[in-house]
Nucleic acid binder design. Structure first.
Lengths: 220, 220, 220, 220
DNA sequence: GATGAATGAGTTTTCATTCAT
DNA sequence: AATGAATGAAAACTCATTCAT
């Protein structure tokens, strides 16, 4: 999928084997470079890490934005998979399903580059579509849990969204294991806070529409 | 303070009025530029936003690092104040004190630029000192709360630290109010999760020392 | 004028002496480079010829277009001066005035870089204004000459315009003197052809409006 | 001819049908690209316009020069045909023959890419030969006309040459019909100026030898 | 014979930093 | 103290050319 095809003017096309390999390597290098250096990371540094010539990078991704977009789409795909996997067990164990979702996001946070300081994600249709699917899945997850009385009634899918974003923010100067350990703890405490009866009611979240499209496309 | 003095070879000196004003403006511009563009934001862009010449910026801050350092120190100062303020009420209402701390950080998150992707904070003695004071205050806050049985026993000051970091991460493409609303909700749920009896015990956090000094100076 | 001022967002500003000198040199270098290599001439080659750093060139002219535009405007200015000078003697000697105009353009053709292959002139207001003044002056020149019966009645100002363009086209691989000699002869024959009674009536020219604005701005 | 053969080490060879078609398309694309963008036009842009792969272009034309050379030779061929056609009627109507020549050049100017700013034509034997034949034909045309007293005695074949060059210069930003109309008028006026008795004697042209070979090969 | 792909060598453009006013 | 200006070095981007399929 993302790793072996490219979109041209006439839809998705199959790449030659070596080209597909290069494309994958560039994306992997971009992912880590973006996390370490921000989305303004030098493109030739990315090419170097990927072991390809800078012009090869440009052949696959005509500009920085195209590269960012694909990295983001790849990340969104993983998030969607986590959400859909969680839905499987939502009926039996709603809170556990939410926990599974968040912890899976934590585990894969190195691969999930949500838009960072330094560069917007333009309105990419693929990203937008994924985003809506994620929202739908999280909505269902929350609805199921609420129906079963497994979570506070004032928690919404938006809260899972923003938590996903925060969890995935890179912390470049912490060793990966430490960052993961800290974020895991954070997620666990957050999940505990989802349980009903615990606390004061939450203030109203912004309307989902207000943070969608352009805006949310930037942050998850 | 930070806005009207500068450290030279002979210690802190009083600036001329216009110079002090320029310095303040540069710091404000840097703060927002860092949040929007990352700490690699062009220095002349910062000068432009501050309405001063690039050479004037250089006169105040010999290099990018000096500028970052001061912005971070200003942010740390605010965090420390929030922590110390919270300590005042810790005896009477420990969980409320923690809540006060976190919500105050949320409220001021626009002013708190904790180190971002794109540039490390070098070992600044002033930043390090503040960081230790923050750690001490949060330690005391947690200790008091734990003694009073107001929080789960497996929660530590480190959890407050990492939460502060996550809360303050910029979300450049969300309108400020929306970002704040979302983060506020996140903080409230997290705080609820701090209450005792709620959940499964947490995994052990990394040793505080492991994430301190160079490392933590980068992430809080 | 063009050599010592620059237009910023707040109108025309006086340049520092050294900056003005650099600006002039860059324009001179651009003029010849454009004639020799086309408007796609490497900008660093132009900077080199001007004896300034490439970044200095960019400081004065934010992109290639700005540079082209100014070179064109400078050329248009010379053409306008030639047309207005010719008007002085139009009453006494109409055909001689036209001849003076064309031969003056020939003489200065090295300084007159009318838009060349390789780069459009965007709709620059200054260029457009000059162009209209040129058209007005040539119109008057032709009208006077026609009234006096000094030229064929089917000749129009457009014919002078297009002739100016052709005359000024660079011939990079001819020695300057040869090119000038050849073009001078060409102009003289053309002028002879303007006399009345000589030849068959010409086919109608395109409407002036049709070749004005965007279009004519490209060719004179 | 030019469109269906290629010169290899063993002389001219017949191309396979598809190869010949590709070659023709490349030449046509090159012709327009050169007129629009100058002879420095990107080769892959030319390949794109021709609908062939860049490597296919290279197979036919080993370098840019070979491509330019063929385009120029094709143009020279058309010019020669026009000159020779004009010679047919030179005896009966000398001035009409000259007019026929120039107007035919005007009509075909889109197909005639005489060397442009941006790149020299190397000394191609085929081009040189054509050029000499053109010069001979124009010489004869002028000689005949002069003998018959149909033109001014100070006009030479060089004047026809330079006029041909000027006429053919591309005016990329004018609609083709407008450009042609304007140039047609220009040519008609010029032709009128050729008639005897009209004007002051012209200054001497540069010696034919001085502008021949390398130089003239660049400009006609 | 044709093409997708890769690359090295430019060229353009930006930016941190220093200098002269 | 502040600014306009200049510059070297880096980064973005393009393009001619060759190679493998």
């Amino acid at each position: 999928m993302a790793s072996s095809t490219a979109r041209g003017s006439s839809g998705t096309v199959k790449l030659r084997a070596d080209a597909a390999r290069n494309r994958t390597q560039v994306l992997a290098a971009a992912r880590t470079a973006f996390r370490e250096l921000g989305t303004a990371a030098p493109l030739d540094e990315i090419a170097r890490r990927a072991g390809v010539n800078i012009a090869t990078l440009y052949r696959r991704f005509p500009d920085r934005d195209a590269l960012i977009r694909q990295v983001v789409v790849d990340g969104f795909t993983l998030v969607l998979q986590a959400a859909q996997a969680a839905l499987q067990s939502a009926e039996q164990d709603p809170l556990g399903a939410i926990e599974n979702y968040l912890l899976q996001v934590v585990d894969q946070r190195d691969l999930i580059v949500l838009p960072l300081a330094g560069g917007p994600v333009t309105d990419d249709p693929e990203a937008n579509a994924l985003q809506q699917q994620i929202a739908a899945a999280l909505d269902e997850l929350i609805a199921t849990a609420r129906t079963k009385g497994a979570i506070r009634t004032d928690v919404t899918a938006v809260d899972l969204t923003i938590t996903s974003v925060l969890i995935c923010r890179p912390m470049p100067y912490l060793p990966t294991e430490d960052a993961t350990a800290l974020v895991t703890r954070h997620a666990r405490i957050f999940i505990a806070g989802l349980a009903p009866g615990a606390a004061q009611p939450l203030p109203a979240p912004p309307a989902y529409e207000d943070i969608t499209s352009r805006h949310l496309s930037q942050t998850i």
